[in-house]
Amino acid sequence: MRCKNDLRPAILPLSVLAVWVIASSAGLTNAYLLPSPGRIAEAAGELLVDGELLRHIVASLWRVLFGFALTALLALPLAFLTGIFAPLGGYLSWVLEALRVTPPLALVPLLILWLGIGEASKLTIVVLASFFPVYMNALAGIREADGKLIELARTLDLTRRETALHVLLPSALPGIVNGLRLGFGYSWRALVGAELVAASAGLGYLIIDASEMARTDRVFVGIFAIAALGALTDWLFRRAAARLMPWRADAGRVSGLEG
């Protein structure tokens, strides 16, 4: 059971932080391999003051948001089409399955060859990484729509369009939101991977650049920035889910991952 202001999730990270501070202060850690939390905070301060951190965050965030919007525009209509017209899903199944099991990062060399090292290759990776969670969850939501409610819609003389709007769409909404939330997390992972390989800005680039300069403290700043942004966007998703689905008491934790 959890109450609203449950602090239990904070216990582990705070404990780790405390051990880390103590170990660093006692000189038990190698400052190059594991800088002290204080040194990392200083590095974060430097990057914030000179605007570098914000520049990298904006570059990554823009790619994720734009790529993710493309994913939603492609995956959601396709899920509805294949959910309602089952034969279409049959035609697409091999191609979709092959793409689904191929890690997007495996395509990076090809994408750089075809699309160059500009934004197009990174956006493509974001789309490939987030497409399947969004598509598969939305499709499952549509396919699992309650047949009894569809039958009811017929007795109420609703048209196919009205049935899709008032029965199928709300029925699929938890799946859609869950897929969007998972897909967004996948976008971040893939994007940072892509930025590690080919970019001149972005959090992935910040990490690889700092690593090459032997600035482990800055590497940690990049990692924490990604984690914080990921947690923030996930929290926003849960808030949006609760607003979109007021009939679901558990709308704020649609995937079953507590938050």
Binding site: K148, L149, L152, L156, D157, L158, E162, H166, V167, P170, L173, M245, W247, R248
Partner: peptide
């Protein structure tokens, strides 16, 4: 029907409005 078959995403009023659609 044997079970109420109310749309969970609509309030009571919303369920009745849907029945009056046409």
């Amino acid at each position: 029907f044997q079970e109420p078959r109310l749309m969970p995403w609509k309030t009571v009023r919303g369920n009745l409005e849907l029945a009056l659609k046409h």
